[in-house]
Each structure stands twice: as structure tokens, then as C-alpha cells.
């Protein structure tokens, strides 16, 4: 069961059972929906950006523990960050999931990720990578919309 323990780390189960930043935001916050048409997972990201800073982020949606924990961890990681910093976190995370060396992240990479490093085990389960990245792709779209 060691493989599964890598996937379902305690932090992930905690964020799945007690997701952070659940809820909605009123306009002018942007609202972007993300779907995984293959498995039916869905996520809605509400994003408020003021003066280049992510002042608030809320999430709704349904899905598996990986998609929901990933979105919860993501919200905690980008809230209060500048848009540039948020984009950098997205980049680091996506490198972790699908970068050319998507195997074992170095200790310094893991430090940079903080709690997000708990999702590193997902890489060993290729069919679940799309579960982990759904929220992040949706956030990228939301950031693009706020800069329009």
C-alpha cells in the first residue's frame, strides 16, 4: 500500500475533508468554471484581484479527493500573493506535475512548494494528474480574465 500512501497523504485527506476557501465571491470578482469531461469533475474559481494582488479566492465544485484537495491547497497558496507570484506558483506546480523531470523533485523544489509538495505523489499515478491540475488550469484562466 506504500504507493497509495504517497497519493493519499494526510494533508490531502485533510484538505479534502475540510476544504479551505469554499464559497463564492460577488462581481467584480471573476468567475471561471473548469470541467474534466472524462470524469465529470468540476470546479468554479472566484478570483478578486486588486492592484495586482490576489485579495481573495473562493471555490465551489465537486470531484475526487485529489481534485478537491489540490484546489484547496492552491487557494491557500495564492491568496494574498501578487499576480506575478501566483503565476510563478502555478508554474512551479505544473512543472511538478508534467515537467520533463516529472519524477523526483529536488529538496529545494519541495521547499518552494510548501504544503503543495504533498501532491508530489500524484505523478506516480498518471491518470490522476488531470485531477490535480484542473483547479490550476482554471485559475490560470481566471488570472488571464482579470488582466483583460
Amino acid at each position: 500500500m506504500s504507493g497509495l500512501d504517497d497519493l493519499y497523504r494526510e494533508i490531502i485527506l485533510d484538505h479534502y475533508r475540510t476544504p479551505r476557501n469554499r464559497g463564492e465571491l460577488d462581481p467584480p470578482a471573476v468567475r471561471v468554471e473548469g470541467f474534466n469531461p472524462l470524469c465529470g469533475d468540476e470546479i468554479v474559481v472566484y478570483l478578486a484581484v486588486t492592484d495586482g494582488v490576489v485579495t481573495d479566492i473562493k471555490l465551489t465544485g465537486q470531484g475526487c479527493s485529489i481534485s478537491q484537495a489540490s484546489s484547496s491547497l492552491m487557494s491557500a497558496a495564492v491568496k494574498g500573493k501578487s499576480v506575478d507570484e501566483a503565476r510563478a506558483v502555478i508554474g512551479t506546480f505544473k512543472d511538478l506535475m508534467m515537467g520533463p523531470s516529472a519524477t523526483e523533485p529536488t529538496p529545494s523544489e519541495l521547499r518552494k512548494l510548501g504544503e503543495l509538495a504533498a501532491l508530489a505523489g500524484v505523478v506516480k499515478f498518471p491518470v490522476r494528474i488531470k485531477c490535480a491540475t484542473l483547479a490550476w488550469n482554471t485559475l490560470t484562466q481566471a488570472l488571464d480574465e482579470t488582466s483583460n
Binding site: Y8, L38, C39, G40, S65, R128
Partner: peptide, 28 residues
């Protein structure tokens, strides 16, 4: 327990089941 997670744990037991909407979204 989401169906995806059920199927993942079952796979560790060598058990193959199908999670998802089964191409029947109106029924879901």
C-alpha cells in the same frame, strides 16, 4: 468517498471497476 478514489484504492487490490459518468450525463 469519490468514485475516482474508490477505484484508485480498488486498483491497489487488483480490482478493476469504472468510475465516472459512464457517458450518461443526463442520467447522472
Amino acid at each position: 468517498v469519490h468514485p475516482h478514489d474508490i477505484s484508485q484504492v480498488l486498483d491497489q487490490h487488483g480490482v478493476c471497476v469504472r468510475p465516472g459518468h459512464h457517458c450518461a450525463k443526463p442520467l447522472m
